[in-house]
Nucleic acid binder design. Structure first.
Lengths: 334, 334
DNA sequence: CTGAAAGCGCTAACAG
DNA sequence: CTGTTAGCGCTTTCAG
């Protein structure tokens, strides 16, 4: 049972393949009558277009590639969801690649996607990625690129990012308003823009409240539950702080683990605020104050941008998405 | 800057495209010397194979399609991760489609994937899907199919499933061992095999302990946090139960919400066990006893199966993955 | 061991 | 409004 092609339809209808192709594409240059005739026959014969053939001929496909560090992270899977929300009705498909935070895998993913002649590329770099050397091929080939969340500022492309500075700023300010004064910062990879900006926002809030910045309570690579817990134990023992703003919910959770273990509690003894609004943050006890990032929205915007770039050619601008502070038990003193 | 093709390389080297093609593919019928020569030249010229052209010619691609209800569910994103773990080193790519639990979208996803001439199809059906009519095209075309987690038993294909019966059985048995006697069941869509089997396991355990099965405390479509909470409130008020085995962690969480709201607690007043080992289940308070499903492993197995089916032709067998019970605070009386 | 030739299925000038 | 022609880039018989 060979697949039916446009040639088969053409023969049956005594027209040429071109006409069938045009009719199927809804080209107005073919008469309404033949258009409908062709479409009906195609359906009747069970015709399925061959995307490969079309893509080969056109030199580009309706598939968009997306590269992310890990798919099983709530934030990223929601972005994907948001991307598909837009791509799907527009007739584009998504090919998903994960880097697992490895630059080598990122390079390979880009290569594979380019070999597949994707119509566009959505990228959130791995934590190992330091520059855009491996993207030159993409740029030169003219395949539109949209970076999101973790972006390389040096690379020309649309960039969709959270306002990490603003999010950290309001979170820290909230702690200050609540009366906490010696607020530690738990950050991630200090080379990533994401964390650089969160630290910036944190410092900005402190300065605004004339709280001196103490580098001994500003910690990097303290972003997991374990490292957050260890850091908290140490800081509490040294009596250095009365609150933590953590650039991630997991390390904030670790901080709360530490408090519980030491017989202390939030918000009474120490204030704790996280970042990301992970699902567990609402459910844990005490519930965790945090900063919500609109992943779905980021996905939507990235998708809209890539479609626009495909249609109108590569663009180059930054779009920033506001975050929202969510006050919960861990930081609100009654 | 046009892309360099196999013809370009052939010209430069004064050989034919066939030879280049063969050399690049590592065909042993071409001399080692030319093979290396071609490869070197290809690299030098920045040759990138065109997957489309190859796929068109061969009639099938190295892309595998996967269809899932929602990507932003911990369970499914972990499956994808597991799938890629295997596909990636084997040289296959993944195209991801979501149905959002809609049959119409599932049909469309299948069509798109078939139009893209995927080499194989991984599928976990939507909750709306009742039969495999829409899969006949896949089966007939000879594209290998592997179903996972939510499967249609009538459809011939490899099927990778959790042992839902066994998971529910051990979870319920655990509650019985802890001394709970009147155990409610919170289930999902009663037409899905997944829930049918969980209910089966639940009943099996009860029978084993000579506990009569009471259909008034067996609830379906009670799988969200909200519905779980409502159901729990109602059952507690009626004094019908002393424990719940919930076929999902969210509804178990809802049950605990209900208890808290009524000034009751687990495990003292009521025992609660969930299913899925969602990340929050460990973090919430009381921590939730639950059944762990090995999503990553399921992904691995599905990927292995699809590769095997691609190489050796469609197969038809069921593979069951054991689940593991995790006892936590919500059900362990001291 | 290499070449010649054909074609996968579709689209897009160009012509009429 | 429709047909002719050519070709996207690659693989694969069939020859030699």
């Amino acid at each position: 049972m060979r697949k039916v092609t446009i040639n088969d339809i053409a023969k049956v209808l005594n027209v040429t393949p071109s006409t069938v192709s045009r009719a199927l594409a809804g080209n107005l240059r073919v008469s309404l009558k033949t258009r409908e005739l062709v479409k009906a026959k195609a359906k009747e014969m069970g015709y399925k277009p061959n995307s490969m053939a079309s893509a080969l001929r056109k030199g580009t496909s309706d598939t968009i590639g997306i590269i992310i560090p890990r798919i099983n992270r709530h934030f990223f899977s929601n972005i994907i969801s948001g991307v598909q929300e837009v791509l799907d009705p527009a007739g584009y498909n998504l090919m998903v690649m994960q880097t697992g935070e490895s630059l080598a895998k990122e390079k390979k993913a880009i290569e594979t996607l380019m070999n597949n002649r994707v119509g566009g590329l959505l990228l959130s770099i791995s934590s190992e990625t330091q520059n855009g050397d491996h993207l030159s091929e993409v740029i030169q080939s003219g395949v539109p690129l949209v970076q999101f969340d973790r972006v390389l500022s040096e690379v020309q492309s649309v960039k969709i990012v959270n306002d990490n500075r603003q999010g950290a700023y309001i979170a820290t300010k909230h702690l200050l308003k609540m009366g906490y004064k010696r607020i530690a910062y738990f950050g991630g990879n200090p080379k990533l823009d994401t964390y650089i900006n969160r630290e910036k926002g944190y410092k900005e809030a402190l300065s605004e409240y004339d709280v001196p910045i103490d580098s001994s309570i500003i910690l990097h690579d303290t972003i997991t539950r374990i490292t957050g817990k260890e850091a908290m134990v140490s800081l509490v023992k040294k009596k250095k702080i009365d609150a933590v703003f953590s650039a991630g919910d997991y390390s904030a959770l670790g901080a709360i683990d530490a408090l519980k273990q030491m017989g202390l509690s939030a918000p009474e003894d120490y204030g704790v605020v996280g970042f990301a609004n992970e699902p567990f943050s609402e459910i844990m006890s005490p519930s965790l104050s945090t900063v919500e990032q609109f992943a779905q929205e980021m996905g939507n915007k990235a998708a809209v941008a890539i479609i626009k770039s495909i249609k109108e050619g590569p663009m180059n601008y930054i779009e920033t998405i506001d975050t929202r502070f969510i006050g919960r038990e861990s930081s609100i003193k009654s």
